[in-house]
Design a protein around this nucleic acid. Sequence first.
DNA 1: CTGTTAGCGCGTTCAT
DNA 2: ATGAACGCGCTAACAG
Lengths: 341, 341
Amino acid sequence: MSKITLKKIATHFNVSISTVSKAINDSYEISEQLRTKIQDYAKANNYRPNKVALNLLNRNTKTIGIVIPNILNYFFVQVLYGIESVADIKGYSIITCITNQSLEKETKTLELLSAGSVDGIIISSAADESELPGHVPQIKKLHDNQIPMVMFDRVTDLIQCDKVIVDDYEAGYKATRFFINTGCRTIAVVTPIEDSNISKLRIDGYKKALDEMGVDFDEKLIVPIGKEDDLDITMSFLLNYRPIDAIMTLDEITAVKVMSIVQSRGYRVPEDISIIGFTNGELSKYVTPSLTMVSQHGKYIGETTVDILIDRIENKDSKKEFETKVVKTSLIVRNSTKKPL
Amino acid sequence: MSKITLKKIATHFNVSISTVSKAINDSYEISEQLRTKIQDYAKANNYRPNKVALNLLNRNTKTIGIVIPNILNYFFVQVLYGIESVADIKGYSIITCITNQSLEKETKTLELLSAGSVDGIIISSAADESELPGHVPQIKKLHDNQIPMVMFDRVTDLIQCDKVIVDDYEAGYKATRFFINTGCRTIAVVTPIEDSNISKLRIDGYKKALDEMGVDFDEKLIVPIGKEDDLDITMSFLLNYRPIDAIMTLDEITAVKVMSIVQSRGYRVPEDISIIGFTNGELSKYVTPSLTMVSQHGKYIGETTVDILIDRIENKDSKKEFETKVVKTSLIVRNSTKKPL
DNA sequence: CTGTTAGCGCGTTCAT
DNA sequence: ATGAACGCGCTAACAG
């Protein structure tokens, strides 16, 4: 006995399908007697209207697709958490797709999602800035498909849609100012996401702060690290190049690793070298010393993103202009930085 | 112009819907000329067959529902990661539901998923042992609904289905043995999940090891902590109760916190007190000293779970007995424990 | 080669 | 108070 349907119930009572449908939906058209008889039977057999059939009928799925590059990254998990909370409250399910930074998988995923299985899409693109131009048509196609979409964090100007982004420029600026205010002058930047727009913005903010304080910008202090790179070696180069006062690291795990390397080389943190990282997760609280971090408020970003998306979904006709919401960061000051002078 | 359908293409070319369907599916029945004409038009208009319609037709969705208690827990994220990887390869999407340990939400979620939107379900129940009996009927109803289901980690004997569990008994045993082998005798257990079966099993293993080595079991050394409890105070009681050699903590974050508290009270880790935690995440590697942890191999568990589920889904007729796979843990030895004598 | 019919499961007219 | 007919978008069996 597989899943029970209206049809089976109808057969069982020797009535028509629509009668059963009405009875189950408490229609006044059906006699009380028959209605309760059918309802009881339905309950007893654990009848649930087939969602897929209803989706087809209503042309919606009450489901949102989430496309993120990486789920082992605390920031994205936080965003996901925020999305799920709000989606749940508003009656939506989420289908999660992880691209592992692979453009190919992202494209495949987008194809899948654009085939009607979701009412809207939230995406943080895996595409690096460099790869993006060639990739945009893919995303665009989907978007032209009339399916509401909101991008967050890793966005691009090349696509017109609602966006929720972090104020990365200001974040880079604030962190750098903080370094300078605590007496640091030679500030390095270690970036595991060099090709991204995000990285660029943070570094622009960094430059702005340097400039304001009359500190010369030194290209060599910007240290990109690839997936395969040996962080130890890269750090050796950096530390031998110039005496470093401070290091800004553009994610959490690298911040922790950099601190560990620096310490193992005999530098004291923060006395010799201060460190600020990005993404305020669990790690940074518990390392020694605890790390000063830029919090991007991932959960809030998730909540905001899904709010906007659901609004688009439920008011498709509205000709509202696309908006780009900018979420400010907070500097969570701990013990990897010196006290302001 | 909303989404394009076969019907619209048919109207456009003034042919029948099935002709279009066949043309798009490269049927030999359609003349080459018409076929390419239709295909070109379809491609140009970015036609994608509506998945919902196909789901209804094929009575499957190629989607798996995942129900987990908490996504901010590294173990579950790892499992999720493992599930997603394999599911993707096998052509399944995943819809993720987070219960936040709420039985109510779990029930709601299960209702939702049992309405035909997924082909199978993977669940780690939010239910504590104490709440379980009342909850089982809910899960059971779903299960009786013929929808394949695999439980992992937090399972119960009350439900008959495939399961993938951690060898928690052995894990507790191994960790305790390790303590004893490094000269520890008075070993406390801090458990944030006291009501769970998992916690019981680990403690049973712990008792077994104590017994084998002729160490008396002391009930007072088992320290449950609730969500609201002040860990600081709880630890004070413990440390004042007896001189403690070692602490086994049943999750990761508590291990880190316990170590921090112990250190702040002037104890050296591991010289005065050794610590072993559960769940080998990022945290434990980078705290000082790095923590010795029990790894449950979350990713592997996820992969295994989804393998079993998909097998059930795709061979529904097979009358294979339900299996319970037990995954062994590994003790990742770092610096929060002493060297074996 | 192309079209008609039927049906996946459901809710919604509109008849009876 | 009950049922027949229709359509959501699609494929497949069958007709022409």
